[in-house]
Protein backbone atom coordinates (compact mmCIF):
# COMPACT_ATOMS: atom_id res chain seq x y z
CA UNK A 1 0.00 0.00 0.00
CA UNK A 2 1.21 3.49 -0.83
CA UNK A 3 0.66 6.33 1.57
CA UNK A 4 1.33 10.02 1.94
CA UNK A 5 3.20 11.27 4.98
CA UNK A 6 2.61 14.96 5.54
CA UNK A 7 4.64 17.02 7.97
CA UNK A 8 3.54 20.53 8.91
CA UNK A 9 5.01 22.85 11.48
CA UNK A 10 7.50 25.53 12.34
CA UNK A 11 10.76 25.11 10.44
CA UNK A 12 13.57 23.68 12.55
CA UNK A 13 16.72 21.63 12.07
CA UNK A 14 16.57 17.89 11.59
CA UNK A 15 12.89 17.37 10.76
CA UNK A 16 13.59 15.45 7.54
CA UNK A 17 16.27 13.38 9.27
CA UNK A 18 14.00 12.42 12.15
CA UNK A 19 11.04 11.47 9.96
CA UNK A 20 13.24 9.52 7.53
CA UNK A 21 14.87 7.62 10.38
CA UNK A 22 11.49 6.75 11.90
CA UNK A 23 10.27 5.46 8.54
CA UNK A 24 13.48 3.46 8.03
CA UNK A 25 13.07 1.90 11.49
CA UNK A 26 9.59 0.74 10.50
CA UNK A 27 10.87 -0.70 7.21
CA UNK A 28 9.02 1.87 5.13
CA UNK A 29 10.53 2.98 1.82
CA UNK A 30 10.36 6.63 0.75
CA UNK A 31 9.61 6.91 -2.98
CA UNK A 32 9.27 10.64 -3.43
CA UNK A 33 9.65 13.80 -1.38
CA UNK A 34 8.57 17.36 -1.94
CA UNK A 35 9.08 20.14 0.51
CA UNK A 36 8.43 23.83 0.76
CA UNK A 37 8.05 26.66 3.24
CA UNK A 38 4.47 28.00 3.15
CA UNK A 39 3.64 31.11 5.16
CA UNK A 40 6.65 30.46 7.47
CA UNK A 41 5.55 26.89 7.93
CA UNK A 42 7.65 23.92 6.98
CA UNK A 43 5.59 21.63 4.77
CA UNK A 44 6.84 18.26 3.58
CA UNK A 45 5.03 15.54 1.69
CA UNK A 46 6.51 12.06 1.30
CA UNK A 47 5.16 9.28 -0.87
CA UNK A 48 5.98 6.05 0.97
CA UNK A 49 5.51 2.36 0.33
CA UNK A 50 4.33 0.22 3.25
CA UNK A 51 4.77 -3.14 1.50
CA UNK A 52 7.72 -4.33 3.59
CA UNK A 53 6.59 -3.01 6.94
CA UNK A 54 5.39 -5.59 9.43
CA UNK A 55 3.46 -3.02 11.45
CA UNK A 56 -0.27 -2.35 11.22
CA UNK A 57 -1.31 0.96 9.65
CA UNK A 58 -2.73 2.18 12.96
CA UNK A 59 0.61 1.46 14.70
CA UNK A 60 2.60 3.31 12.02
CA UNK A 61 0.20 6.23 12.31
CA UNK A 62 0.53 6.28 16.10
CA UNK A 63 4.37 6.14 15.96
CA UNK A 64 4.49 9.06 13.54
CA UNK A 65 2.02 11.11 15.62
CA UNK A 66 4.17 10.47 18.70
CA UNK A 67 7.28 11.63 16.83
CA UNK A 68 5.34 14.73 15.77
CA UNK A 69 4.44 15.50 19.37
CA UNK A 70 8.12 15.08 20.42
CA UNK A 71 9.42 17.37 17.67
CA UNK A 72 6.63 19.92 17.80
CA UNK A 73 5.31 19.37 14.25
CA UNK A 74 2.18 17.74 12.93
CA UNK A 75 2.90 14.40 11.23
CA UNK A 76 0.19 12.29 9.67
CA UNK A 77 0.03 9.36 7.32
CA UNK A 78 -2.88 8.71 4.98
CA UNK A 79 -3.57 6.27 2.18
CA UNK A 80 -2.54 7.78 -1.16
CA UNK A 81 -5.77 6.43 -2.65
CA UNK A 82 -7.98 8.94 -0.82
CA UNK A 83 -6.15 11.88 -2.40
CA UNK A 84 -6.25 10.28 -5.84
CA UNK A 85 -9.94 9.68 -5.41
CA UNK A 86 -10.61 13.25 -4.32
CA UNK A 87 -8.39 15.22 -6.68
CA UNK A 88 -8.11 13.13 -9.88
CA UNK A 89 -10.92 12.37 -12.31
Amino acid sequence: MKAIVSVLGEDKKGIIAKVSTALYDMDINVEDISQTIMQRYFTMIMLVNLEDSKLKFSQISENLSALGRETGVDIRIQSEAIFDSMHRI
Partner: peptide
Protein backbone atom coordinates in the same frame (compact mmCIF):
# COMPACT_ATOMS: atom_id res chain seq x y z
CA UNK B 1 2.34 12.44 -7.25
CA UNK B 2 -0.43 14.43 -5.59
CA UNK B 3 0.63 18.04 -5.02
CA UNK B 4 1.33 19.59 -1.65
CA UNK B 5 -1.56 22.00 -2.13
CA UNK B 6 -4.04 19.19 -2.76
CA UNK B 7 -2.94 17.37 0.37
CA UNK B 8 -3.13 20.52 2.45
CA UNK B 9 -6.58 21.30 1.01
CA UNK B 10 -7.92 17.88 2.00
CA UNK B 11 -6.46 18.03 5.47
CA UNK B 12 -7.71 21.57 6.06
Amino acid sequence: MISINEIIETNR
